[in-house]
């Protein structure tokens, strides 16, 4: 490519694109530390808006709800998704139908899954709340965990498993002592990804949380606040939420890139 490229033009493109990508977020982060809180005048560095968050009961309860949803759905999705990944990778025949079912939660539009689940829970007369959000989040989370773990297992030598079985180990023992250590980094990477997706997920939670005030998650709270306009508190909250997902996902990528242990 380099032979076709005008270096100055390339530099200009990169500068423009990165400015487009980073200026909006940077402004937001900078304003969250602006003492006066107004977007038009810088009145000094301050963390007071972060302090205000701690005293906002709605935000704290929403943050707690999000933590509950994210932790429970991540644990469930990690177990189900990892087992699914092993199951699919052990099989020698790959079924197109199976692949579609596993792939679907990742590409199905949020709004469609959200209304489908809303109709489903309503027709079954299930009272909706945090538990229905958890049930719903596990759907896409397990698919993501499964795909991360599968990528790792693709390079796994299954003859080791046969050797373990031949030497008399039962299947659960083989899974825990042979397969698990190899796939553990991918399992943790998948869990971090699932946790982040769940913390950030808005639409499905919005539709499946029911009408109760006590089942509002953080993204739902942010959505409600944003509709009323820009406040320094939202800037601070947005900065925290952004930092959490970026850190968790960078960590997840790191873990996933490392080679197999012992290699």
């Amino acid at each position: 490519m380099a032979s076709l490229a005008n270096p100055r033009l390339m530099l200009a493109i990169l500068a423009a694109v990165f400015a487009f990508l980073y200026v909006p977020i940077s402004v937001l982060v900078a304003l969250s530390f602006n003492d006066g809180g107004l977007p038009t005048a810088w009145t000094g560095f301050s963390t007071r808006w972060y302090g205000e968050l701690l005293h906002n009961r709605d935000i704290m309860s929403a943050a707690f709800n999000t933590l509950v949803v994210a932790v429970v759905s991540t644990v469930l999705a990690t177990i189900l998704g990892s087992l699914l990944a092993i199951g699919v990778e052990i099989r020698r025949r790959k079924g197109r139908f199976l692949e579609t079912i596993i792939f679907a939660p990742m590409i199905i539009p949020d709004i469609v899954l959200a209304i489908a689940l809303l109709s489903f829970f309503s027709l079954l007369n299930v009272t909706m709340g945090l538990h229905t959000v958890i049930l719903s989040h596990v759907v896409f989370n397990l698919a993501f965990v499964c795909s991360v773990v599968r990528a790792r297992l693709k390079t796994f030598d299954w003859s080791i498993v046969e050797a373990s079985t031949d030497l008399g180990a039962s299947t659960p023992v083989t899974l825990v002592r042979i397969v698990l250590p190899v796939m553990l980094p991918a399992v943790i990477a998948g869990a971090l990804l699932a946790f982040t997706l769940s913390v950030d997920e808005f639409i499905i939670a919005f539709f499946t949380a029911g009408a109760g005030r006590d089942s509002i998650t953080l993204p739902m709270q942010i959505f409600a606040m944003i509709r009323f306009g820009v406040t320094p508190e939202i800037n601070a909250l947005a900065t925290i939420v952004m930092a959490v997902s970026v850190i968790a996902l960078t960590l997840s990528q790191r873990l996933n890139r490392g080679g197999l242990p012992g290699q």
Binding site: L83, I86, G87, V88, L113, A116, V138, V139
Partner: peptide, 28 residues
């Protein structure tokens, strides 16, 4: 591990996807 064994590993996840994705979507 034989080819039949993976089924019980996959069952919980596939049951979950059936209950909370396939059936709701068919319902729509």
């Amino acid at each position: 591990m034989k080819d039949r064994k993976p089924l019980y590993l996959m069952t919980p996840a596939l049951a979950w996807l059936t209950a909370f994705m396939v059936i709701p979507c068919l319902l729509i």
